[in-house]
Amino acid sequence: MRREDIDPRFFGDRLAYNRAVVLEQPRRWLVVAGHEARDDEGGIAAVGDIRGQIRLTFRRLGETLHTAGFALSDLVQIMIFTVDIEAVTANYDAVLSVLAEADCRPASLLAEVRALSDPRMLIEIEGLAAQ
């Protein structure tokens, strides 16, 4: 598969952001449902702690990718939904560190929503991966 990052423009270098990603001849796709910061028993973890929820959500996303034979670096798109966009932007370095460590620069969306499926959730991340 050949990958080309398109038009990172203003924020690309600082925010691991691309306006688009061109993929030629991917062999496999993985559509990843929204992930949240769940502990090992399935409860919401890091309640009230946006940094903790960001880190754990990406860890859970990585586990799902790994189970399917993918890695975080295979993500070509992520959508981050939050109930507190100011908290996420103030702690966006936690997102950037995960993406940088994985050498991942997906097309991305960050959006504030009125509510997520559990009122203790501050963030939910879904994605699209390709190989």
Rank of each mutant, 00 (worst) to 15 (best):
L122S: 03
V88I: 09
D93Y: 06
A68G: 05
I125W: 15
L109P: 04
A46T: 02
S97E: 12
D7C: 13
A45D: 13
V113H: 14
V76A: 10
A130N: 05
S108Y: 13
I123M: 13
H35W: 06
D5I: 03
N91K: 02
E86A: 15
C104W: 02
V98W: 10
L56Q: 01
D40G: 14
A87C: 00
R3K: 15
V47W: 03
D49H: 02
F58P: 03
R51N: 06
P8F: 11
G12Q: 09
I6N: 09
E24T: 01
V76M: 10
R14Q: 12
V83T: 03
I44S: 04
F11A: 12
A102V: 00
M79V: 07
R9K: 06
L75R: 00
Y92C: 09
E36S: 10
I80Q: 06
I80V: 05
T57Q: 12
A16N: 08
S108E: 06
D103I: 00
A130E: 02
R51A: 06
R28P: 06
A87Y: 00
E36V: 07
V47M: 01
R120M: 03
G48M: 01
L56S: 05
G69T: 08
E86Q: 14
G48K: 03
L128I: 14
R59W: 05
D39C: 09
Q53N: 06
C104F: 07
Y17V: 04
E36N: 09
I80D: 01
F10S: 11
V21A: 13
R105A: 08
Q25C: 07
G12S: 10
H66Y: 12
D49F: 04
L122D: 03
A129D: 11
V31A: 10
E63L: 12
L61R: 08
R9Q: 07
A71Q: 11
A33L: 09
N18G: 08
E86S: 13
L56C: 01
Q25R: 14
M1F: 03
A111D: 11
I50K: 01
G42K: 11
A20W: 09
G69F: 02
R9S: 08
T89P: 02
F70L: 02
H66A: 15
A46E: 01
P8R: 03
